[in-house]
Design a protein around this nucleic acid. Structure first.
Lengths: 230, 230
DNA sequence: TCTTGTTAGATTGTCGACAATCTGTTTGTC
DNA sequence: GACAAACAGATTGTCGACAATCTAACAAGA
């Protein structure tokens, strides 16, 4: 018997790479909300044919970050204040559930991974890398969902994450201020290591509410302006 | 100004029709779990080319009822007891949330629709139409999610529903017994019309637990047998 | 001037053919 | 006989071209 655990080899289809490229472009705000994706132009830029590009787009439509209108085109979703509100209120419920399910299964490996991801956030914060900061913060947050041992919950949360990451990226892009230097996740991590589950659940709610208010304000402001066309 | 409200016209792409056809085939158990979908064969049967068929498949993969392995094929998902357990435990959480959100917004139109859907279930039950019975029962159940006015919740629930419908169809197909004739949704509807929200939430949990136990028993039994290949 | 019909251009939807990859069989070697 | 290399068939992934549809500009008529 071998000792090493082999992870699945990378998907080597163009489609998979296109999905990754497009998703990244959307989640970092490179492609703006409402913007139309011209198939011919993009396929030429990526040096692929339209077939795998279109298949990739269908995936992202189902993932919820693109929207498609037959014979009209495929567009980046528009972000409304209500969308953010909806996503966040559901996220709260999922967090509470995830913490409950994770709680009994916490072990040394869990705490190690928690620290590792927390460190990643802190490093991104030090480097003033806003994009990476958002990414790592969501990964830290996602640990409880991965550890809850519920595939449907994990899937659901990953879909939600896509949107949240997009919202945060837009928000960060809008306000050109520096990123908060202090560590807002300290308490969250500490409570997850502690013995009071209810306290951890309560904090997850409040902790989320914090950045949420900022995001909502931004979204309400954004709704006054027109959306980007082709 | 006109008086009528026009709904969006139907999608008239082959892709959309293929998605509907395939989904129906899967959710009714016509296509068995684990079964491989041969692109050439299906495209010839449907008299379409592989392009729209493949795009349709990508959508259903993201919807969670198909799974794809590069260069190997696309398969109907396999149903494990844990999958069912996961889906149901999350469903409980979502139901509780949906009832809370719907509660304040209940009005005459809500109650009417509730009765309408309840009647649909009863009629399907009278007609011994098991497929339709599952469909209508899930639609009755889905009303609180539609009424909660949270797009992300609704999306999430619809994804879950796909699987639940598939699970139930398999279950019904397995046991050849007659469908329960008595009306198991009577209490559920009554509580949703009442004034005690907590009671409604509690019942939603227990009500679900009922059929759930049966489903789980079936799934555990199913896991002893091999899965269907090509 | 406003509405309606026409047309040209651009873009999406679909098709049939080819390339890349996998799977099972056969062949050859030890 | 056991094993590995080579082959053949089938299937998926990708491509370039064509058909269907939409959009916007323009022309014609009330």
């Amino acid at each position: 018997m071998g000792k090493t655990d082999f992870s699945p080899i990378a998907d080597t289809t163009r489609r998979a790479e296109i999905v990754a490229l497009l998703r990244r472009a959307i989640l970092t705000g490179q492609l703006e909300p409402g913007q139309k994706l011209n198939e011919l132009r993009i396929s030429e830029q990526m040096r692929v044919s339209r077939a795998p590009l279109r298949e990739a787009m269908r995936e992202l439509v189902q993932e919820g970050i693109l929207t498609s209108i037959p014979y009209a085109g495929t567009f980046v979703i528009n972000v409304t204040a209500k969308d953010i509100d909806d996503a966040y209120s559901l996220n709260k419920v999922l967090d509470e559930f995830a913490i409950e399910r994770t709680w009994k299964q916490r072990d040394e490996r869990f705490f190690d991974e928690l620290d590792r991801r927390h460190d990643a956030v802190k490093q991104a914060t030090r480097n003033r890398d806003t994009t990476r900061q958002i990414e790592t913060a969501l990964q830290l947050h996602g640990l409880i969902h991965e550890w809850a041992d519920n595939s449907v919950l994990l899937e659901t949360w990953q879909r939600l994450t896509s949107r949240l990451q997009m919202y945060f990226a837009l928000h960060q892009q809008a306000r050109r201020e520096a990123v908060p230097a202090e560590d807002v996740h300290e308490t969250y991590v500490r409570l997850l290591k502690g013995t009071d589950m209810r306290a951890a659940q309560r904090h997850a709610r409040e902790h989320i509410d914090l950045d949420f208010e900022e995001l909502l304000a931004y979204a309400r402001d954004l709704e006054q302006r027109p959306s980007k066309g082709a």
